[in-house]
Simulated assay, not measured.
Amino acid sequence: MTHIPELLLNDGNRIPQLGFGVYKIPDAETPDAVLTAIDAGYRHIDTAAFYENERGVGEGIRQSGLDRDEVFVTTKVWWNQNGYDSTLRSFDESLDRLGFDSVDLFLIHWPAPKHDKYVDTWRALETIRDEGRARSIGVANFHIHHLERLARETDTVPAVNQVELHPWLPQAEVRAYGAEHGIVTEAWSPLARGRILGNEPLARIAAKHGVTPAQVVIRWQLQLGNVVIPKSVTPDRIRQNLDVFSFELDADDLATIATLESGERTGRDPDDLG
């Protein structure tokens, strides 16, 4: 069994640094994907209301035979449910679909600043945390100015900020702000939805270490100190994405990857959504 490092969150809880993402996996296929991931050694599953597969995540974990507290589960409130009361309702619905009494991490999926409801949404997350139904709370897709507003207007620093992050978009300023304020950075689309894997410099680094370009990028994420949640439905790739602890990128490798930054996103800019 692969030992996955854990990072300490600012609330005293711990999060496995490498998790399994289930974005775009159909609900009916999710239990098998989750079972494959758990069998490979993953103990961190990342879902969301928007993914429409929370039911499958819960079923896969139950079928695994593991105790609920052996698997770290994250879910999220979608931006069109932002707001205090609507977030509480959305969370109740997520728990019902998962079949759980609580989750390990609950996130605001997008700030949707044009709707101007993310501060009230954050206050709902504080309530859910205080009730013991989410052990940790955090945000996703927050720019620094969104985080600064939470700091001014609320009482809790997010435990996690989950953002699009890959060699084209390394998010250095967001990571630095997180490090300064005790917010763990978590990477979604860590492989740029697979688009970056044909990159020649990454291929050379992979050949040097006898691994795949995907393994290089995941290892890079870990060495940056990020939590990373690659997604696949292919059993071999699910296992391969976890097999990243037998090699280490050296300074030359890291310098080469640093040259790939282009600012390219595979998703929306958070200020443009909503």
Rank of each mutant, 00 (worst) to 15 (best):
H115G: 14
S90D: 14
H109L: 12
Q240N: 13
R135D: 13
T127E: 15
L8H: 08
F142I: 11
A134T: 05
A151W: 02
R135V: 09
G263H: 01
D116Q: 10
R133M: 06
Q223L: 04
I196S: 09
W168K: 09
D11Q: 02
A134G: 11
G182Y: 09
G99T: 06
R133H: 11
R133G: 11
A251D: 15
R55I: 00
D11T: 03
E29V: 05
I61Y: 11
P170M: 04
S246R: 10
I25Q: 03
A37D: 01
P31V: 07
R97Q: 15
D92F: 05
P190I: 06
E126N: 12
V57L: 07
R97I: 00
A40G: 10
G12P: 05
R195E: 15
F91P: 04
L273G: 04
K208A: 14
H145E: 15
T234K: 10
E153M: 04
H166D: 09
D85L: 07
Y51L: 01
L107F: 10
T256W: 07
V139H: 04
K231E: 07
R129S: 14
A124N: 09
G56S: 03
A159R: 01
P170T: 08
L98F: 04
V163R: 08
I25F: 07
L222R: 08
V163E: 08
D130G: 13
T185H: 10
A176S: 13
W122P: 02
V163L: 10
L165E: 13
A37H: 02
H3W: 07
A176F: 02
R204M: 10
F50G: 13
I45E: 00
I4Q: 10
T75G: 04
R265L: 14
V227D: 02
L18R: 01
D67V: 02
G178H: 09
T256S: 13
L222A: 07
N10D: 11
S90G: 15
E173C: 02
G58N: 02
V57R: 04
R97Y: 11
R152T: 14
Q63L: 14
V244C: 10
T154H: 04
V139C: 05
T185C: 07
D252Q: 13
Q17A: 15
L95W: 06
I238A: 09
P5S: 13
T30D: 09
K231P: 07
I238E: 02
D46T: 06
I15V: 07
V211W: 05
D32Q: 14
R89T: 15
W110E: 11
I108D: 08
L95E: 08
D120H: 06
D116Y: 05
V160N: 00
A179P: 01
R152F: 01
G21S: 05
R68V: 04
H109C: 12
L66M: 12
Y42T: 10
W122A: 08
R149E: 09
A214F: 00
M1H: 15
R149F: 02
P270M: 08
A203V: 11
R193P: 05
E164K: 08
G198L: 08
E93C: 12
R97P: 12
V71Y: 00
I108F: 05
K76R: 06
V139S: 04
D236R: 12
D155K: 13
S102H: 15
P201N: 08
A176M: 01
I137F: 00
A251T: 15
H3T: 15
H146G: 05
S262A: 07
D92Y: 07
A124P: 07
I238H: 08
